[in-house]
């Protein structure tokens, strides 16, 4: 095994399991649908709330997608092979998270304009929402990968993983929705986007190391 063959195989397995990607996307749409149904379908409520609704749904959908990211590798012995390969676990984690990110976020960005319409998001703010998702979601994936690695050996680790990880998502959600709100009020939003990018970079640098420690501890 080397990094290249691993990355290729990760892509292949994600492409073979398109249903997982589709499920995350459907979950995202489902959560968004709950807000007009559960709170208020009028454009007076939805239009200002759209950024927040989209981001809450994104965070939940990503948690769902990330939660099981190592499950199969754990069950079929692939994680043991990671350790035996002598390759850096952090880099393997990075490659895996990157592939996962592309597989979930690209389709999500594709359906976003449609959902933005349904939530009466002003057209001028759509670009900011897209940018915030592009810059903010890497942090969600990388932080989530730590929780997934910690709970991979537990049979019912999903809820525990949510409890561990969701509080850490708060800054991303705050700054992302802040950027969208600023754009809706026609104020400057580049600062918030820059912070999102910075958080993602920090998460990118530190999370693979933490996830690697957790994977080592999980496999025994």
């Amino acid at each position: 095994m080397n990094y290249r063959s691993y990355f290729k195989s990760e892509w292949l397995s994600l492409l073979r399991r398109k249903q997982d990607t589709l499920n995350a996307l459907l979950f995202f749409v489902m959560v968004i649908t709950l807000f007009p149904l559960g709170v208020d379908p009028s454009s007076e409520f939805l239009s200002p709330a759209a950024g927040g609704i989209i981001w809450c749904a994104t965070a939940l959908a990503i948690l769902m997608a990330v939660e099981g990211m190592y499950k199969e590798d754990y069950n079929d012995g692939s994680l043991e092979q990671w350790l035996a390969s002598g390759l850096s676990i952090s880099i393997l984690v990075f490659l895996k998270v990157f592939a996962q990110w592309v597989m979930v976020v690209v389709p999500l960005l594709l359906v976003l304009p449609l959902l933005a319409q349904m939530l009466f998001l002003p057209a001028s703010a759509l670009g900011v929402v897209m940018w915030s998702i592009l810059l903010g979601t890497p942090a969600l994936f990388f932080i989530g990968s730590i929780g997934a690695a910690l709970t991979v050996s537990l049979r019912r680790g999903a809820v525990l993983m949510l409890l561990l990880i969701l509080p850490l998502y708060i800054p991303v959600i705050v700054f992302a929705t802040g950027a969208v709100r600023a754009a809706q009020m026609e104020m400057a939003y580049s600062g918030q986007l820059a912070i999102l990018g910075a958080i993602s970079l920090v998460a990118l640098a530190l999370s693979p190391i933490m996830a690697a420690v957790s994977i080592r501890a999980s496999v025994n």
């Binding site: 397995s13 073979r16 079929d76 012995g77 692939s78 043991e80 092979q81």
Partner: peptide
């Protein structure tokens, strides 16, 4: 210098 095959030897079902 080693090759390890575990009890579950890391064979992916989708491949």
């Amino acid at each position: 210098d080693q090759l390890y095959l575990g009890h579950t030897p890391g064979i992916k079902n989708v491949f």
